[in-house]
Design a protein around this nucleic acid. Structure first.
Lengths: 330, 330
DNA sequence: CATAAAAATAACAACGTTGTTATTAATTTT
DNA sequence: AAAATTAATAACAACGTTGTTATTTTTATG
């Protein structure tokens, strides 16, 4: 049997309503009694009953995160970061790996105050009356909830510009192309647009998938390009990891012969064989943004349904450097 | 404002206690009234309030799963399977990716009925008074909660025996060795023991890690072994995937020249470039075992603290075959 | 030092269920 | 057809909180 505020009341010789106020640090109770009650509560090992609180307050202070495709590792880091970001708020987070529908059912039962869903495709999420925020591809459809997304186009532009400033003129892109993965498509298009804008010739190598090995394999093709690139943009952490490994094996110096810049801005970039320069919205920022978005949506009345495109930032490390050669042609 | 049993009661012209009974399908209420109430409830879109129920019943019918190392993908499949296994029970599952301590705190707040923890090392988990079941390395320490583990020794024995029966006499093991990862150590030792028992010479290649690429790299060493093996046991899904890829690239026929068998029994083994024969406790079985274990522990009084070693099974696919050559030497 | 005002505490009604007990209605039984 | 039995329903007290209102105690005021 767990200890309740009534038990504390008896022990401290006050009424249980006073205990409740004391525990909630209400100014209505005298400091000395408050201290006494707090002490007694601690001594007795009091743990508040969430169900009772919830019953009267109609709030759980819990948000549910729906992550249906648990097998995609990139998101794991994001989940960890979101979980961490919640720690400094009064909300807790619970996670479901079920399908969006099932998970929403469960969360409705739990009466979470809000939900975050990792939207894979441009699916429309049927919003019950629980505040909802999506992370993922914004696309072009009308939605009734906010979507947090990264500004992929701007990311690619920054990457290209950065390499250009280092003197690179032959910049290749390696990644998945021409599938119906909206996210990947946005990346390629961003790259193409950026190259065009700056007046360079685009050279991209399509991979077969999104795995490490796909990047590894793509390097052969990259090196056989008519005009051998001096810089490569890898489309993701995994892809770039494979590219880096292959370059190493082939004895191609990074960054002396080829500069490598990776999409995705996660801490793991620091610990690759050669720490990688990368572009993308830093996960911790991303996580913070998402968390703030749900909370804001939970706590404010007005429903904003805006798409928020976050600005990527470039983190410079050792995989990039000036173009090889004696001078920088212009 | 959500609809409550009182609203239904008013609408159906009965008392709210009758509604409660009807919704719980009690035999104390007449069939016709029951039907009417159920109909009204549905019409009004009634959703039971978990908090209220929980408050009086002292049960949440929720179990928490603690998975601190979300980045290790192998377990993702297990999590998915556990989640699925819970669907056919009256329990729901929630997931935490926090550290064991933090997660346990949260779950205590939620008043989950039980917890599953993925124990990485031979850590001792401080059991509060919530029923707990661990999955992971059983080790040798005394525990107060049940541990579900796979019988790694038996797995290796089965694998070796299987290959032996196919005529193989040179069987190499590829995996992480001599670290303080208890699980990996158990695997190697199982292999060594099995080889000794059957009277074969062990030949193992240590990898640098547990990733795909570590398996990929190990193949060179395998092929350079004094007595070139006709069969390889890969220590995990990822490792074996790397091995397979490398063999393919080197033009070594699988299974014509070399048979490959992988540890881990997950559905993904079916979809590798050559569907892989594998050994291990099938994930769905494993998940079912774990789920049953918590439920049993929640619902029965007596605390059993046994270590349960599950029997692995071998699933034959196309990566293994008889030893090459004209006859099988004995 | 009585009295008004302010501060501190106590009482109690919610919240939405379940489960137990009390009441009423419908059957048997004689 | 009245009494006894059984079936169906209603009433109500929990469960552990919060928040509002009522009461008591303390302090300030004239």
């Amino acid at each position: 049997m767990n200890v309740t505020i009534k038990d504390i009341a008896k022990e401290a010789n006050v009424s249980y309503s006073t205990v409740s106020k004391a525990l909630n640090n209400s100014p209505l109770v005298k400091e000395v009694t408050k201290q006494k009650i707090l002490r007694v509560a601690k001594e007795m090992g009091y743990e508040p009953n969430l169900a009772a609180k919830q019953l009267v307050r109609k709030k759980t202070e819990v948000v549910g995160l729906i992550w249906p495709t648990i097998e995609r590792i990139v998101l794991a880091t994001l989940v960890t970061n979101i979980s961490k970001a919640f720690e400094s708020t009064r909300y807790s987070m619970i996670l479901s790996v079920d399908s969006t529908d099932t998970a929403m059912e469960t969360f409705k039962k739990f009466q979470v105050d809000g939900m975050i869903v990792f939207a894979e495709s441009e699916q429309m999420i049927p919003e019950e009356n629980i505040p909802l925020v999506a992370y993922g591809v914004s696309g072009k459809r009308e939605v009734t909830y906010p979507i947090i997304d990264a500004n992929h186009e701007q990311a690619m532009e920054k990457a290209v510009q950065y390499l250009y400033d280092l003197g690179h003129r032959n910049i290749a892109y390696v990644g998945l192309m021409n599938t119906n993965d909206a996210l990947q498509n946005e990346k390629v298009e961003g790259y193409q647009k950026a190259m065009k804008k700056i007046g360079l010739l685009e050279q991209s190598i399509a991979t077969n998938g999104l795995d490490w090995f796909d990047g590894y394999l793509a390097v052969d093709d990259v090196l056989n390009l008519e005009k051998r690139p001096t810089a490569i943009i890898g489309s993701s952490y995994d892809i770039s990891g494979g590219i880096l490994r292959s370059l190493q094996e082939k004895g191609v110096g990074v960054p002396d012969e080829i500069s490598l810049i990776s999409y995705d801005n996660i801490p793991q970039m620091e610990t690759t064989e050669i720490p990688m320069t990368c572009i993308g919205v830093p996960v911790d920022e991303l996580a913070e943004e998402i968390v703030q978005a749900v909370i804001q949506r939970i706590e404010s009345e007005e429903k904003n349904d805006a798409v928020k495109k976050l600005n990527p930032s470039l983190t410079e490390r050792q995989s990039t450097g000036p173009v090889p050669g004696d001078f920088i042609s212009n």
